[in-house]
Nucleic acid binder design. Structure first.
Ligand SMILES: [Mn+2]
Ligand SMILES: [Mn+2]
Ligand SMILES: [Mn+2]
Ligand SMILES: [Mn+2]
Lengths: 218, 218
DNA sequence: ATATATTTTTAGACAAGTCTAAAAATTAAA
DNA sequence: TTTAATTTTTAGACTTGTCTAAAAATATAT
């Protein structure tokens, strides 16, 4: 069994490993968890003793298969709870993360299986992130940043890169919702801003926004 | 804000105070929480510093109004989660307690309000125990033990005194469910067992069972 | 290749929560 | 009302997870 703290370290390493081939550095973990490098070194030793990471001094850390499975299960719980909060309890997508951070540590396999069923076995959370299955496998869908679209191309909104409540509330304000179709009308060379069409309405979108919104080309 | 451990102490004292006029003894709390008296003394000092209990050395402990409110809120969360598990996730009433012990510590007022609404503002949990409102008030319904019924009197099942899974599963097996009406056909002086009628069926019930099942006289 | 800067680890400390063993206070019994 | 038994508190230790400051290793720059 793993403590709350150990689970958070495993999850942090799991997230950092996606899109990284080398071992994860002590500093990277410390930054992710808003803690100090020395604390990370201590915890890594414990996790190494428990066979969930492989650790070589000064060489960074990698999850073992066991570690990956445990971490994926925490992510699974986090995302299922986020779906629950939005679908069943009328939370908006910018309110769910902090509560899910707590709920993800509840230990009860039956609870999570039944929750999965109640929600109709969702494949993605409210931010468009995939929900790992019971074995920790997740299918990556083919998505790209809005900024990668060319003029006159269209895409369906499928996720966000930045899921801070600031960004999510901004999208709400602009009526940009996952599932809607965006068409690029114009790309400005000057500031890389975009003129887009969504829901029949025209909108101007800064480069920063376009770099944080995922779409699937249609 | 209170730690998980502090919350568990407050809840234990809250339960012990129901049906006790004096201060709650160190040993009583230690037994309830399956810990040692010395640990209780340490924690009581902390809770006293935080103004949630009043503590006089060797004289036991009492919740302040603030302490009562916080404890009642934890009980509220515990019981709402139990209702959720039974009503929405198909848990049986003997499976919910351990999970609720974890869920009761999740901090999110919105979560609990929305959960309350989703469940239709229930007044009692699956074991017949009342759910405190947002202010910590709970209305005690007039219930008595099955063993208090006289021959030919009837009552509706409204709760259990012992909510161990052993007892609950026993009731399941005998088809004794909250809401059903029980009529006492016979009382045996010899062993204080009861012959009862429930759902048209006749059943023999030991004194131990009759002393752990609450009914409301009809 | 050597010096400098950065990263990582170690050493030592601290708070929370728990425990055992011993001392002090209270309660019950003779 | 003394003595004995029980309850409660204190003293000191241990674990988990964290921190700061200093040492060691690695990476970067001249
Ligand atoms: Mn999240
Ligand atoms: Mn999410
Ligand atoms: Mn319970
Ligand atoms: Mn209950």
């Amino acid at each position: 069994m793993f403590t709350l703290s150990e689970e958070n370290y495993l999850k942090a390493i799991y997230h950092l490993e996606l899109g990284a081939d080398k071992g994860i550095s002590t500093n990277a973990i410390a930054e992710q968890l808003e803690t100090k490098a020395s604390s990370v070194t201590d915890m890594i030793k414990k996790l190494s003793d428990k066979k969930v990471v492989v650790y070589k001094k000064y060489k960074g850390v990698k999850l073992t298969d066991l570690g990956k499975k445990i971490a994926a299960n925490i992510v699974r719980k986090h995302r299922l709870w986020e779906v629950f909060l939005v679908e069943k309890l009328n939370f908006s997508w910018d309110e769910v993360h902090d509560v899910a951070e707590q709920l993800e540590h509840i230990k009860s396999p039956k609870l999570i299986n039944q929750l999965d069923a109640l929600l109709g076995f969702p494949t993605h959370d409210p931010h468009g992130d995939p929900i790992p299955d019971e074995n920790g496998n997740l299918k990556i869908i083919d998505k790209s940043l809005l900024s990668a679209l060319q003029k006159n191309e269209s895409g369906i909104c499928v996720g966000v890169d930045d899921s801070s409540s600031g960004f999510l509330q901004f999208l709400d304000k602009k009526d940009i919702v996952l599932g809607k179709i965006i068409t690029v009308l114009e790309k400005e060379d000057f500031d890389n801003s975009l003129a887009i069409q969504i829901d029949g309405k025209k909108l101007s979108i800064s480069n920063k926004i376009a770099n944080n919104l995922y779409i699937k080309k249609v």
